[in-house]
């Protein structure tokens, strides 16, 4: 009886020590789940999900504090990927957080811009170039289309322009099987 308890306790101590050592030695920095969720999010940093950026939203999802359907730029596709990753049910995009729009970039009307730098301060990805009392402009390739520069502009000189398909961005379509009327069999 005593021996059995001793054997079990020694075993428990040894295994506990091994696990404790492994927990310190092979500690994973950060939360890998947050990284995975963040990789799916579109990185527009628009805040439409009610969190200040994509990473905080990813953290909130990982903690179970946020739904997966709060990201309008990610769209239905993004929600499906998150549902797959997290093993949750797919939900349609929550209407209170916005609607899915085609990708657009902000464009500054350079005739109207007064050089107030308010949009530069609002841009989360530093995609606006300019200085005080100098004309501002947007680097189209780096604009994520978050629309955060629209409200601060005092002269409303920023508009969102939808990106159109070009020869370079055109994609081959999924082959569609054409249906033919059946031959008139006798």
């Amino acid at each position: 009886m005593f021996e059995a308890i001793l054997v079990m306790s020694v075993g428990a101590i040894v295994l506990g020590a091994a696990l404790g050592y492994a927990a310190v030695k092979f500690r994973v920095e950060g939360d890998p789940l947050v990284e995975k969720i963040d990789a799916i999010l579109p990185q527009t940093q628009c805040g439409q999900c009610s969190f200040p950026g994509c990473k905080p939203y990813a953290q909130a999802i990982a903690r179970g504090e946020a739904e997966i359907n709060q990201c309008p730029p990610g769209g239905e596709d993004g929600i499906r990927k998150l549902a797959d990753l997290l093993g949750r049910e797919f939900k349609p995009l929550s209407a209170e957080h916005g609607i899915e729009k085609p990708k657009a970039v902000a464009v500054i009307d350079e005739q109207t811009c007064i050089g107030c730098t308010l949009c530069i301060q609002a841009c989360p990805v530093d995609a606006i170039v300019g200085a005080a009392k100098q004309m501002h402009t947007i680097i189209a390739e780096q604009c994520t289309g978050c629309e955060l520069c629209l409200p601060p502009c005092p002269v409303d000189c920023i508009t969102m322009e939808t990106l159109h398909e070009t020869v370079e961005t055109w994609k081959w379509k999924y082959p569609v099987v054409t249906l033919h009327p059946a031959a008139n069999l006798q």
């Binding site: 990185q43 940093q45 989360p124 990805v125």
Partner: peptide, 12 residues
């Protein structure tokens, strides 16, 4: 593009 946006956001 998303990775680049993330880098820029984090740097900001």
């Amino acid at each position: 593009l998303a990775d680049e946006a993330r880098d820029r956001f984090e740097f900001r």
